[in-house]
Amino acid sequence: MPSQVFEKEQSAFIPLLRAEYIAPFVARLKDFENNVYPLIEQAGLPESLLTNEYDYVSEQAVLNLLKLMAEKLGRQRFSEWLYQVARSIFIPQHLAKISLKGSVRQALIDFTHVVNLESKQTQVHLKTALKKVWFARFRQKEDPIEIDLSEQFALTMMVELVRAVTQTHWQPIDIALQSSNEAHYLNVLKLNESQVFYARNVTALSISDAVLDGPVKLKEGWDSTLKTIVESPKGFIASLQFALLPYMSSGRLPITAAADLLGLSVRTLQRRLSEEGVSYSQMVEGIFFQQAKTLLLNKDIAVTQISASLGYADVAHFSRAFKRMSGFSPRVFRQNNQPK
């Protein structure tokens, strides 16, 4: 896909990451910090992240966290930690969504399907170029630090994925990197035999046919039960709603705070909303309304609890807001929508 087309498609949604991947990753911050919540808050991640209450988090907040950890730990220690976390958390999570009954080539193709379905901001492919097969990943980002950190994470994942399905200390023949900076973390990944090319338009590893055509090999006792793959939200409004949802329990989020959490300027956020024909306040009201309706359908959750979870000062404020949006009080709505 040409880069300009991919950039245009990226502008049509808010980059999101599945919370099922990020929550265990954030929990591993306890390797260094007894109280991880100050780091979570500083990065702009929702405090509720570790409760697994929501489906998605903003990718920008995760990148903020990576930057904070890189500064805190230093390059070498951060690279070693990221390497261990990728091996122990992210690789098993992704392998659990792939059948792994065929060749290494098929496993990598299946992996690209998972990533491209779950994450629209990154495209991963197995492609042939220059008479070589490349495991390639493309994404566009302006911040040079974020380019380096996201590429380091991606390369770590790609290398360790091949090693996991071959049960070897595999090294790619060639490595292409988008970064123009020296990749200090290659030593941590034990990639001393690979030829490295910098300032490319993709992150890619060349893989021999002998490796690709070999059978998948896994550790003894691997649980072959497949986990569900969930497609990421389509469209700007849907992805924005999922990105902001985890923050709404603390009350109305000002547009300035929302823009900051998403790595956008207020003007850009307002422009994109205007193009969709909706204002920021209308979109926020919609999020609260959908949340309220979902919670009210569960008769075991008290209305007072729902009001508090949505950040309202008291039940009276919640009831007035809900009636304005639906035409019914919360209790009448609940009565009218109980199973017959």
Rank of each mutant, 00 (worst) to 15 (best):
P2H: 11
S3W: 11
V5H: 04
F6I: 11
F6T: 07
K8L: 12
K8E: 13
Q10Y: 08
Q10W: 10
S11M: 14
A12Y: 10
L17A: 09
A19I: 07
Y21V: 06
I22P: 05
A23W: 00
P24E: 08
F25Q: 03
K30Q: 14
D31R: 12
F32L: 01
Q42W: 01
A43R: 01
L45W: 01
E59H: 13
E59L: 15
Q60S: 04
L63T: 10
N64H: 11
L68A: 00
K72G: 08
R77P: 04
F78S: 07
Q84G: 13
Q93R: 08
Q93E: 15
K97T: 14
I98L: 01
G102V: 05
Q106W: 03
D110T: 09
N116S: 05
N116D: 08
S119F: 07
K120M: 10
Q121N: 13
Q123S: 14
V124S: 10
L126S: 06
K131R: 14
R137L: 15
K141Y: 14
K141G: 11
D143I: 09
E146F: 09
I147P: 00
D148F: 14
L155W: 10
M158T: 00
V162I: 15
V165M: 00
Q167G: 09
T168C: 08
W170D: 02
I175K: 01
A176D: 12
L177V: 12
A183W: 00
V188C: 06
E193S: 12
V196R: 10
A199D: 14
N201A: 13
V202A: 09
V202T: 07
T203G: 01
A204M: 03
S206M: 00
S208C: 02
D209G: 09
A210G: 02
D213S: 11
G214W: 05
V216Y: 00
K219G: 15
E220T: 15
W222C: 08
L226M: 13
L226E: 01
T228M: 06
T228R: 10
V230K: 06
E231C: 12
S232N: 03
K234M: 14
K234A: 15
F236I: 02
F236T: 04
F236E: 10
A238R: 08
S239M: 00
L240S: 04
Q241S: 15
L244R: 04
L244T: 02
P246H: 06
A257M: 07
A258V: 07
D260T: 06
L264C: 02
V266W: 02
V266Y: 01
Q270T: 13
L273D: 09
M283E: 10
F289S: 10
Q291N: 13
A292T: 01
N298L: 06
K299L: 05
A302Q: 11
V303R: 10
Q305H: 11
I306R: 04
A308T: 11
G311L: 07
Y312I: 08
D314K: 05
A316F: 11
F318D: 03
S319W: 05
S319T: 15
R320E: 14
F328Y: 12
V332G: 03
